[in-house]
Nucleic acid binder design. Structure first.
Lengths: 336, 336
DNA sequence: GCCCCCTTGCAAATCGATTTGTACAACCTT
DNA sequence: AAGGTTGTACAAATCGATTTGCAAGGGGGC
């Protein structure tokens, strides 16, 4: 009895119950009526033989594999596991299983995986493209398998998009600082054209302008999305002629670097200078002081992607595309 | 031309090239000889029609899906993405695609997913069990699909195991503290019977005894694997009659909590008290002072699991089981 | 009592590839 | 020149389920 799971097929069940495979299939799927008596017999046989339908065979015949693919840049980047977790929870509840693959942001890898997903007849793809444009994705995948793209939409009516709306959270952050009495606020963004920094800087400028606050170019700095990047940029801002009393950052790593810079300058956080990050990665709650930051709701993005995909699968390829923007929110801790 | 990918099957390719489907299959798989001339014709047709074999159909016939499953407790726990990344990189290189699923440590979820993997004919399973014993896993899965288990082996000769060997790293940590002049070292473990804390505490005791150091029960504390758990336990140790000059912790979150406790007691790190964590999660490099910790080589574990699984697939179920223990290593930063 | 319809179950086709058995030809061997 | 070997391609069976078309039996309406 090494094998808890014998290799019974639907034919074995049919033989055991004294009916045809057809009847077994109908009894189990409910797609056609089966008398209560035979259904009972079949259920007994199923239990006795420990029958489990071969899902590969089912997938081939029914053209539905109940499989989806999640394609991200790097699963070990703390943002993606949150997304994956949301996707996973929604989809497994409906009997889907997710393939999870990394592209490392390489265009050729994105193309290769997409083609492989099509060859494997996945029922849907959720993807955060780094190198491919939505049009090319659509071209590779074709109309047969639905795609939900994480990121800014390109106005297309045939692809679903989900993104988090940085504006709401950043605006809340600026308002919060304003309420605390801050009138001079700086911002550290990422390198030009790379990542979400540009969009977040724009959101920041809008929010500051909306409150009628003064801005100063010396209070804006850029650097890589790392702790060291934040340290450098933060030091530059603090060295300006009249430094701001608060700094917002394009991500949490930069914010942690900015805290280093503040400490190095002998400033106390948040009494001398307030700092707010972006992303609310797990780390944010573990540094000292605990980082006030903007939660971009990664898990919510995953959930929304999965739900959007399920709707698309149900509605077919001709339904109008959904473009979802999830609100972000300020998480107030100790650094501001 | 919305569809970059037409729906050509092997029959279409055969018709286009003027040969039989059999010949196409053999030309592409190389399992039987095909003359150079026809092979060329076929390759042209494949390219023209953009043919990609349906991998579901192939999987059904060949009984190999080139699919594996990775079953973990929680993909958003920073340990697992590292493992997943290692698994992913090795397996995708060989044409496998990984399903990634979470169990949240619930026994019933572990059982359900294992059964589903079998039903889907995955070629292998890599699993970090939380609630199920190896024997039960073996029982559910049967002999048909190979399993690699992450964790302590149970002496079985039929299941492959991979684990990281805490002893090497913890011993290195204790030696390092000893070299720095510490003669009284405490340890904060997790709750009894849960997680890796017990094993790590044993390794710690062995290392301390090997150096002939004195131990004191007041220097050992337990608590949940969280920052707050570390704060509590750390405070208790520091309140003992003669507190130690260094504390090792069963994981990094506990270590961060212990640093909080030290600060609360007015102690400077590492001059007044040295602290060493375990796991080297991404956070460890971001707290202040940067946490000295023991890297358990999560990515290496993933790589080893994948390689072990590939070997098992190649060797068949009767080959002797491999039990691998990967060395851990001390990462020296600022907290010790 | 006759006819029709509805329920129930089976046989056979199907999904799209791989794999096996076989036929035909050409080329060697003796 | 007869017999044997090798190379090449095809037809048919196969993987394990779902799905469709059809037949037999039972019940109800008129």
């Amino acid at each position: 009895m090494i094998d808890g799971h014998s290799i019974a097929g639907i034919i074995d069940v049919a033989a055991d119950a004294g009916v045809s495979p057809t009847t077994v299939s109908h009894a189990l799927s409910g797609k056609r009526a089966v008398s209560a008596k035979t259904r009972l017999k079949i259920q007994e046989s199923v239990a006795r033989l420990n029958y489990q339908p071969n899902l590969v065979a089912r997938g081939l015949r029914s053209q539905r594999t109940h499989t989806i693919a999640l394609l991200v840049a790097d699963i070990s980047n703390p943002y993606y596991p949150e997304v994956a977790s949301g996707v996973h929870d929604v989809l497994t509840r409906d009997g889907y299983l997710p393939f999870v693959c990394n592209t490392n942001g390489v265009a050729e890898a994105e193309r290769t995986f997409l083609a492989e997903f099509v060859a494997r007849s996945v029922d849907g793809i959720i993807m955060h493209p780094m190198a491919l444009a939505p049009a090319e994705i659509r071209f590779i995948v074709g109309r047969r398998v639905p795609v939900v793209i994480i990121g800014e939409d390109d106005g297309s009516h045939s692809v679903d998009f989900v993104r988090s709306d940085d504006r709401t959270g950043i605006s809340a952050g600026v308002s919060y600082l304003h309420d605390q009495g801050h009138r001079s606020i700086g911002f550290i963004s990422g390198p030009v054209g790379i990542g979400p920094g540009d969009a977040r800087l724009i959101s920041f400028r809008l929010a500051v302008a909306a409150l009628g606050l003064r801005t100063d170019d010396e209070w804006i700095a850029r650097g890589p999305y790392t702790r060291d990047g934040g340290l450098d940029a933060g030091a530059r801002i603090l060295a300006s002629s009249t430094p701001p009393t608060a700094i917002m950052c394009a991500n949490d790593l930069i914010a942690i670097g900015a805290m280093d810079a503040a400490r190095a300058a002998g400033l106390a956080i948040p009494s001398d200078i307030a700092i707010i990050g972006c992303d609310n990665i797990g780390i944010a709650d573990l540094v000292s002081p605990r980082l006030t930051t903007i939660d971009n709701n990664a898990r919510g993005v995953g959930i929304a992607c999965a739900e959007t995909l399920l709707l698309r699968i149900a509605d077919g390829p001709d339904a109008v595309a959904r473009h979802t923007a999830l609100p972000t929110r300020l998480v107030i801790r100790q650094s501001a």
